[in-house]
């Protein structure tokens, strides 16, 4: 049998070349896809976390205005803290209000619990058990006019574990010091007149209670 260059045309070689080329292109495409996807996931994770925290601060803002009716000039927030509301298992205080909040243009349904608790440096907390004019001090007696509000945020489909928890010190002036980023609070009406904007916040010493 004589040797020859080729008895038939060999289309397989072309196929291999084409397949190889496709494979390389596919590999490059996929690697770019996965890289951009991982960046995108990272970004959206941060955004989601921010939204949850914003929701928590918004819940505090929303419920804060409701505590005004419990204020009394002589006993401060003692009436509020003394209510027989259920207590948080995590020690955030008594359940003041629950509600729902929608974020991300309706795509995210969240529910919240807002708790009230005395601040740790209230003398009534330190002096728990002691007597003061027929009143026994305990952690639910307010002697300084400051309390802590804590909001737990849950996804509406899973209320077993919170996705964000934020706390704020609330004083009768309406001023508050928020434990974490205040940026989101400024989205709500920080000037408490319904005219707040995202870039401003009111730092006046506002001595009118619960305006």
């Amino acid at each position: 049998m004589m040797s020859r260059v080729s008895r038939h045309r060999q289309p397989g070689a072309t196929l291999v070349l084409v397949m190889l080329t496709l494979l390389i292109f596919l590999g490059m495409t996929m690697s770019m896809f996965f890289e951009s996807r991982s960046v995108s996931i990272q970004t959206s994770g941060i955004k989601l976390s921010r939204m949850h925290n914003m929701a928590a601060l918004s819940a505090i803002q929303r419920e804060k205005v409701e505590i005004g009716s419990y204020w009394q000039d002589d006993t401060r927030f003692s009436d509020l803290l003394g209510q027989a509301w259920p207590e948080s298992a995590d020690g955030y205080g008594k359940l003041f209000a629950s509600g729902s909040v929608t974020m991300n243009a309706g795509a995210m349904d969240l529910v919240y619990n807002v708790y009230v608790k005395n601040n740790a440096d209230d003398l009534a907390v330190i002096m728990s058990g002691m007597q003061g004019y027929g009143k026994t001090y305990d952690q639910w007696v307010d002697t300084d006019g400051w309390i802590i509000m804590t909001a737990e945020i849950f996804n509406s489909y899973d209320t077993s574990s919170p996705v964000a928890v934020q706390s704020a010190i609330i004083a009768p002036t309406g001023e508050e010091t928020v434990e974490h980023a205040e940026l989101s609070v400024t989205e709500q009406n920080m000037d408490r007149q319904g005219t707040g904007s995202i870039d401003s916040f009111d730092s006046q010493l506002d001595l009118g209670k619960f305006q």
């Binding site: 002589d74 002096m127 003061g132 001090y137 002697t143 300084d144």
Partner: peptide, 10 residues
């Protein structure tokens, strides 16, 4: 201390 509750923080 007794006055604390009625008269505000010490």
């Amino acid at each position: 201390v007794q006055n604390n509750y009625n008269n505000g923080p010490l």
